[in-house]
């Protein structure tokens, strides 16, 4: 099994000693949030990027650390409506199938080519969010595939540590997926009751001194000391309805107001994303 053709290094690899003379405060590499707590990051949304698909859209979110650099990059393509496979049972509705896939190079840790459980989980969340938005009975006996590729994940390259932020990153990713998929669905000409967009809000604690946690919209995990709870909302603005709500964290049940205002801020973030979505769609007709 040994590789004899090359001259390999010694078996027990070690890190070269590195003497860090920098001042100790440099260790805290967390950048701080420069936006106001109720401001979302800038979005770029474009439809009709994949000519071969029935509908497609591309979304980019400004990065956190250095303004101007992109953070999240998503591309979504919608195929269909098309005939269901012969084995599928009769369906009076359109059958949605959603696939969310990280590109292998999208995150700090390489992703495999097969979808892992977190990607499947995102797919189900996306399906729930979209199912409420589309008018399914307009397209009987047909199926539509919605494929979201995450080209670049929303992660801060500056931080070397993995702080267990992946779960919070997932929420940001999901909200982007919802917005981009809604744009692609509209581009494909599939009937929707409304334009659905995603928004994230989190309860964050920035200081260690036990100060009261605050609510931040569109949070970037690496900018905050600790995230206590977060929610991702898929919201239909004209109908004032929520198609998907995903909350996780740790909140005392006695403080329901905190939960309500967290969801309210999530909806606010979703409304911001929706404005971009509507601008983008109006651009395609006008």
């Amino acid at each position: 099994m040994n590789d004899r053709r090359r001259i390999n290094g010694p078996a027990g690899a070690t890190l070269a000693p590195f003497f860090d003379d920098a001042a100790p405060q440099d260790l805290d590499t967390r950048s701080t949030r420069s936006r106001p707590p109720n401001a979302t990051r800038k979005l770029l949304l474009k439809t009709g990027v994949t000519p071969s698909a029935s509908g497609s859209a591309y979304l980019e979110i400004e990065t956190s650390a250095k303004p101007g650099l992109s953070g999240l990059k998503l591309s979504c393509s919608v195929h269909g409506p098309r005939a269901l496979p012969k084995s599928a049972p009769f369906s009076p509705h359109i059958v949605l199938s959603t696939h969310v896939k990280y590109a292998p190079f999208a995150t700090q840790q390489r992703r495999g080519y097969l979808r892992d459980s977190s990607e499947r989980d995102l797919g189900i969340h996306l399906e729930t969010a979209l199912r409420g938005a589309i008018i399914a009975d307009r397209w009987p006996k047909s199926g539509v595939d919605i494929i979201v590729s995450i080209i670049e994940g929303d992660q801060d390259r500056e931080t070397s540590k993995l702080q267990g932020d992946e779960v919070w990153d997932m929420m940001n990713t999901l909200s982007g997926c919802i917005t981009v998929a809604a744009a692609a669905l509209a581009d494909a000409g599939i009937d929707c009751v409304d334009t659905v967009a995603g928004g994230v809000a989190a309860l964050v604690q920035d200081a260690d001194d036990g100060s009261a946690p605050s609510i931040a919209v569109d949070p970037i995990p690496s900018e905050h000391k600790r995230i206590l709870a977060a929610c991702c909302v898929a919201y239909l603005p004209t109908r004032d309805e929520v198609t998907n709500l995903w909350f996780r964290g740790d909140l005392p049940a006695s403080d329901l107001d905190l939960y309500t205002s967290l969801v309210g801020h999530g909806i606010q973030a979703s409304k911001n994303a929706n404005r971009v979505l509507i601008d983008c769609l109006s651009g395609t007709v006008g």
Binding site: P92, H125, T128, G132, A136, R248, G249, A253
Partner: peptide
């Protein structure tokens, strides 16, 4: 008890897939 809320997820209700 003192309850703590840990997570909420929306379940896609199968009612959307029923025939009208």
């Amino acid at each position: 008890r003192n309850l703590r809320l840990l997570s909420i997820r929306t379940i896609d209700p199968p009612s959307r897939l029923t025939a009208p």
